[in-house]
C-alpha cells in the first residue's frame, strides 16, 4: 500500500516537473530585438532599493530618461520601471510593489497612457505583468488589466495560454528557458540608431479626447500613495509627438488642470524640445516616435537639473557603496553606447 502511494506521488511529481519544464519552454522569452521590452519589468528586482527617483510609465519613459546620466551628472540614483503601453493602473501597481522595496524622494510618471481608460491588449499586458513577482500588487494589476478574453488562471499557469507554442519553439526558447539576457540599463532601453523625423503633421483623430474616470481614479490613487509615503509625484510628457502617438491639446488641458488642482508639478517637454536641444534629425531612432540615446541624454540632463535644483534631490556621489554600484552600471552603459 505504502509503495503504491509512493509510486503515485512520484508519478505526480514527475508530471508536475514535466509541465513546469514545458511551461518554461513555451512562455515568450522577449529575447529578440523587436520584443526585448518585455523583459524590462522583471529586471528591476536585481537593482531594487536605494533609489532617490523612480520612473513609471509607457515606452516614452524607458526611451527618454537615462539613470546612468542622472547619476553621472547629478549624483541622483534612479530606476525606470517602464514597459510597452504600460497603462496607468499598471503603473500604480508597479509603484505600489516598488514601495515594498524602497521609498524614493520622487516618482516620475509619464502621462501619455492616461488616454486609455480600459484594458487594451493582452500581448502588452503580458509584457508588463508576467515580469512582476507574485504579490498582492501583481494580483491587483492582473485583475485591473485583463481584457474580456483573458483569464486570471492563465497568468498563474502561463502554460494554459501559451501551450500551442509547443509546435513553434525556436532555439531561443531553449537557450533562454531559465532566464533572458539583461536588456536595460537600470530600466533604460538603449537605442543607438538614427532615423530622422520628417513628418510633423498633426496626429490622427481619436474617437474621444476625454480622459476616463478609470484613468483619473488610478492617477488619484498614485497621488495618494505618494502623499502617504512622503514622495513627490512629478508628471511629465516626453518631448516626442508623432502621428501615431500624438499628444492632443485636449489631453494637455485636462492634465494641466489636474496638476494645478492637486498642486502637482507637470512638465510637458514637447514645447521645450528646442530649449532642451533635441534635434529631430539626429535624436530619434524611429522617425520621432521615441528618442534615441543621444536625445534621451539631452532630455535627462535637462530634467536632472530640475530634479536637483527645484526638487532638491541630493547628490549622493560621496556615498562610497552607491558610487561603486553605479561605476559598474556606467561602465556597462558606455560599453553599449559607444559600441
Amino acid at each position: 500500500m505504502k509503495k503504491r502511494i509512493l509510486i503515485t506521488l512520484a508519478a505526480i511529481l514527475v508530471i508536475c516537473l514535466l509541465l513546469a519544464f514545458l511551461q518554461t519552454l513555451v512562455i515568450p522569452k522577449y529575447a529578440d530585438d523587436k520584443t526585448k521590452e518585455g523583459s524590462l519589468v522583471s529586471e528591476y528586482y536585481a537593482e531594487a532599493g536605494g533609489h532617490d527617483v523612480l520612473f513609471v510609465g509607457d515606452c516614452e519613459i524607458y526611451e527618454s530618461f537615462v539613470p546612468a546620466v542622472l547619476w553621472e551628472k547629478y549624483g541622483i540614483s534612479s530606476y525606470v520601471r517602464g514597459s510597452p503601453q504600460q497603462l496607468v493602473w499598471q503603473s500604480y501597481y508597479l509603484l505600489e510593489e516598488m514601495l515594498e522595496y524602497e521609498t524614493p524622494n520622487a516618482v516620475v510618471f509619464n502621462v501619455f497612457s492616461l488616454k486609455y481608460g480600459e484594458p487594451q491588449s493582452e500581448p502588452y499586458n503580458r509584457m508588463t505583468l508576467d515580469g512582476m513577482r507574485w504579490s498582492s500588487s501583481k494580483i491587483d494589476a492582473i485583475n485591473a488589466s485583463m481584457t474580456d478574453e483573458e483569464s486570471f488562471i492563465e497568468y498563474v499557469f502561463p502554460i494554459l495560454r501559451f501551450h500551442s507554442r509547443i509546435t513553434q519553439l525556436t532555439s531561443q526558447d531553449f537557450k533562454y528557458a531559465f532566464g533572458s539576457p539583461k536588456v536595460s540599463h537600470s530600466g533604460y532601453l538603449m537605442q543607438t540608431g538614427v532615423d530622422p523625423q520628417t513628418d510633423f503633421s498633426k496626429g490622427r483623430t481619436e474617437l474621444d479626447y476625454e480622459i476616463s474616470d478609470n484613468a483619473w481614479k488610478y492617477l488619484d490613487m498614485m497621488r495618494a500613495l505618494c502623499e502617504e509615503n512622503g514622495i513627490e509625484l512629478i508628471l511629465v510628457k516626453a518631448p516626442t509627438n508623432t502621428m501615431k502617438y500624438w499628444w492632443h491639446d485636449e489631453y494637455e488641458e485636462q492634465i494641466s488642470e489636474y496638476a494645478e488642482e492637486n498642486r502637482l508639478s507637470y512638465y510637458n517637454f514637447i514645447p521645450l524640445a528646442g530649449e532642451i536641444g533635441i534635434d529631430w534629425s539626429t535624436d530619434t531612432y524611429d522617425k520621432g516616435a521615441h528618442l534615441n540615446v543621444y536625445g534621451a541624454e539631452k532630455l535627462t540632463e535637462y530634467f536632472g537639473r530640475i530634479l536637483s535644483e527645484d526638487f532638491g534631490i541630493e547628490d549622493r556621489r560621496t556615498d562610497a557603496s552607491l558610487s561603486e554600484a553605479w561605476d559598474v552600471r556606467l561602465e556597462s552603459y558606455y560599453k553599449e553606447r559607444n559600441g
Binding site: K34, T35, C59, Q85, S121, P123, K287
Partner: peptide, 15 residues
C-alpha cells in the same frame, strides 16, 4: 506615406 512600428514589435501603422 509614413510607417511607424508599435512598441514591443507588435505591428506597424502606416499613413
Amino acid at each position: 506615406s509614413l510607417s511607424m512600428g508599435n512598441c514591443g514589435g507588435l505591428g506597424t501603422l502606416t499613413k
